[in-house]
Design a protein around this nucleic acid. Structure first.
Lengths: 232, 232
DNA sequence: CGGTTTGTTGATCTCAGTCAATAAGTGTGG
DNA sequence: CCACACTTATTGACTGAGATCAACAAACCG
């Protein structure tokens, strides 16, 4: 039980789009509110259509966000990581959640009730700013997703763009992109709006063309530029 | 030249997701910064790939936001109206614009330079909050768009969902949705990810089925629930 | 072990994109 | 007012990409 991130003040998670990127005084205050939660892989953090009565700050682990349509088809919205906030947009809009969040790994979260969070936002001016930056970052990602879905006409284009987006978000920014790909073909299909079988076929094609290398969960895109020019 | 909205303090635009929904003192300050711009229909407010060096608050008129892919296909992101802010997410993320904004009518805008806006945000705590709420609202809309694009498999589903989304955003919330539809078939196609011809065919089909009534720019969806259950 | 999820490949079929031709509307200038 | 150009809408025919169905292999797991 020692390894949970216990202290916002000493926590090293401070990316540029990280919600916790606050002034020292405000971090102190953040430390005093909310409660810590530890979840095992596969647990549900928040559920579509439920009321947004609290927000969760991700301290450790990755969390899959999905949105579903009436007939059960899924869209993988994004994979949230440390520094992200879950449920914030729904809470601010005072509407029900439109996404389901499910842990992929062991996760540490900080849960903050609605009233506490709003009070926190009123109390320090950098909270609103940080929330805005955080949501703005999510928004830009969502925009890329929507554009990809709307404008890539071919299945190859959709899958290639989805892989490139993922790799650029997750991996190092070198010439060849290398990253973990924990999703099944079915889930990749959900991201790109394709069927499971089509994902299999296309990955095979990409591999034969030398655009994708696969080794278990490890995925490498050796020539992202070429991939983009060919299919996107 | 009298009709331009000249004063933030007396301006009546104060929706729940409106950026200008600020405390009186902050509105006073807003009034003192930035400069007013009037644009005619069809003019460009901001351009994809340009730097986000200012934000625009929409005071009057409607503005079409589009995102384009490498091969020139368009996605209509949304139609912005009074109280919306343009360019805010790009400015906060310090990246180039990912959308192009073009006026549909005569528009009054308030332009605020990057530095001024950031200073404004630092000066009053409700600015950050209001910005966060504003972006959160855009985010939710973007999420709906992406979900629609990803999960509606059939063309009819995509178009029906696009029309329903549009009507619910724009029109009254009664049993039958009635609203202005200023978009051409081509543009509707861009919203839903369809070709122009398919839009024509589907609108004809919907009309024959009594799901859509058209009279010039006026569009009525007499049975949104039925439409949703049939196609979404 | 058996059962379930995941990956792979082939065959078929349908939906919607594309091409083409035409009509209808809209504005412009003579 | 008409001729003209241009945009937008409409309909038909064709075709191809990808979903679906089906069968099976491989991995995973209690």
């Amino acid at each position: 039980m020692q390894s949970a991130v216990q202290n916002c003040v000493t926590c090293p998670v401070r990316g540029p789009h990280c919600f916790c990127n606050l002034s020292p005084a405000t971090v102190q205050e953040l430390q005093t509110i909310g409660s810590r939660v530890r979840l095992r892989p596969g647990e549900t953090v928040l559920r579509e259509d439920s009321m947004a009565d609290r927000v969760y700050v991700v301290c450790r682990g990755k969390i899959k966000l999905t949105a579903s349509s009436a007939d059960g088809k899924l869209l993988i919205v994004r994979i949230a990581g440390p520094g992200d906030v879950l449920g914030l947009t729904s809470l601010l809009n005072n509407v029900r959640h439109k996404v389901t969040a499910e842990t992929l790994e062991i996760c540490d979260l900080k849960a903050i009730g609605r009233a506490d969070f709003l009070a926190f936002m009123e109390s320090s001016r950098d909270v609103g700013r940080s929330a805005a930056v955080s949501i703005a970052w999510e928004y830009e990602g969502m925009l890329l997703t929507a554009r990809r879905l709307a404008t890539s006409s071919s299945a190859a284009g959709k899958l290639a763009t989805a892989l490139l987006d993922w790799g650029r978000m997750d991996g190092a920014g070198g010439e060849s992109l290398e990253f973990r790909m924990p999703l099944t073909h079915e889930e990749l299909g959900s991201m790109a709006g394709l069927s499971r079988e089509t994902v299999t076929r296309l990955l095979g094609k990409f591999r034969r063309e030398g655009l994708v290398e696969l080794d278990g969960e490890r995925m490498v895109l050796p020539a992202p530029a070429k991939m983009e020019s060919l299919y996107c």
